[in-house]
């Protein structure tokens, strides 16, 4: 039974230009109750936070606690 790669829209969006993961910030990753955010390395070697798992309670600590306002929580499409 092979696993499929099914596309999904993710509710949490991070603005790369504002994200300071490069400076070692992991606040949004740390506070998420469902642990769905991670830090990714971009093509140019810099880092940014992103939503790795589409398992969002749209609760907002990531947005509220982000020191630079880089994180936006949208509602998952299925319930919006």
């Amino acid at each position: 039974m092979p696993l499929a790669q099914t596309a999904t829209t993710v509710p949490v969006v991070v603005n790369d230009d504002l994200c300071i993961a490069d400076k070692g910030c992991t606040v949004c990753v740390d506070v998420c109750p469902l642990d769905v955010l991670r830090i990714a390395e971009k093509a140019d070697g810099s880092k940014t936070a992103y939503m790795k798992y589409d398992e969002c309670w749209y609760c907002m600590p990531c947005e509220a606690d982000c020191p630079t306002g880089a994180v936006t929580v949208n509602l998952p499409y299925l319930l919006k």
């Binding site: 109750p33 469902l34 398992e55 969002c56 309670w57 609760c59 998952p76 319930l79």
Partner: peptide, 8 residues
């Protein structure tokens, strides 16, 4: 995860 309670 669209629950009333914290989904965790």
């Amino acid at each position: 995860y669209g629950t009333y309670e914290n989904a965790s």
